[in-house]
Amino acid sequence: MKWFIPREHGAWAMLIVPYLIGMLATEVTLVHWFFFIGVLAFYFASAPLLTFVRQPKLLKTAVPSLFVYVLIGTIFTFPVLYLIPEIILISLFILPFFILNIVFAKLKKERLFINDLCAIIALSFLVVISYYIGSGTIEAITFILMTINIMFFTASVFHVKTLIRENGNKKFLMNSNVFHGFTVLIFVLLGMPMIALIFLISSLKAWMMPKQKRYKPVQIGLIEIANSVIFVVGIGIIF
């Protein structure tokens, strides 16, 4: 049986980071970890599902691992959904973005920036879910954290694309530099200097990495993982 383990470093971070920052901003509980195992299993299930969407002839290859992942996800998430049914309502906001991801996969246009943005927004709702599990409520700070997460990963996508698919595209590079600058400036203007500092660290990475050099995907992935760790630690300390 083929397991279809997701290999994208960015997607792993987009899944783990929002859940962690929502959790760290509240009281960490065993329910958080129990539910996260289920979320992780469903994320794994997306790999065989999208493989089937792209190549329907691989149905028999994709179904076994899809079934196992969905079963594990169900075992770990359904008890939590029974205890905290409000999570189901929050999850409904994720569905339209997930459907768009499937449509882009079917059209074989998964590399489009808009597809990445849909995935970022969808997974950023994990901030809200994780925060709700820990606090039993949704507050203004929940959406602030969610927005910060969206901005962080949007900047990351801009940066990674300047090094790979959009390498040499001066207009895209300019947009990336401007967006990174915006992430710093907006939090300075909002009177949140520590958040601005976190984004400045991320922006310096994007601005100073030579764009003429060809990087291996694993090199870019490791740098982004390190950047994500700095982000989570910083947000955890601040909030």
Score class of each variant (00 low, 15 high):
T26A: 10
E27A: 13
V28M: 13
V28P: 04
T29F: 08
L30F: 13
L30M: 13
L30K: 12
F36I: 10
G38T: 03
G38M: 05
V39C: 08
F42V: 14
F42L: 15
F44C: 09
F44H: 05
S46M: 11
L49I: 14
L50R: 08
L50E: 04
T51F: 01
T51N: 12
P56N: 02
P56C: 01
K57I: 12
L58C: 02
L59M: 11
T61E: 14
A62Y: 01
V63K: 08
S65F: 14
L66Y: 15
F67R: 09
V68P: 02
Y69M: 09
Y69A: 06
L71S: 14
I72G: 01
T74C: 09
T74Y: 10
T77A: 08
F78P: 02
P79T: 08
P79K: 03
V80W: 07
V80S: 04
V80P: 06
L81G: 04
Y82C: 00
Y82G: 00
P85W: 05
P85T: 11
E86C: 02
I87Q: 00
I87P: 00
I87F: 05
L89Y: 12
I90D: 01
S91K: 07
S91D: 13
L92G: 06
L92Y: 11
F93T: 12
I94D: 04
L95S: 07
L95K: 00
F97T: 02
F98L: 15
I99L: 14
I99M: 10
N101E: 14
I102Y: 12
K106T: 10
L107V: 00
L107C: 06
K108P: 03
K108I: 09
K109E: 12
K109L: 15
K109N: 10
L112P: 03
L112T: 08
F113S: 00
I114M: 15
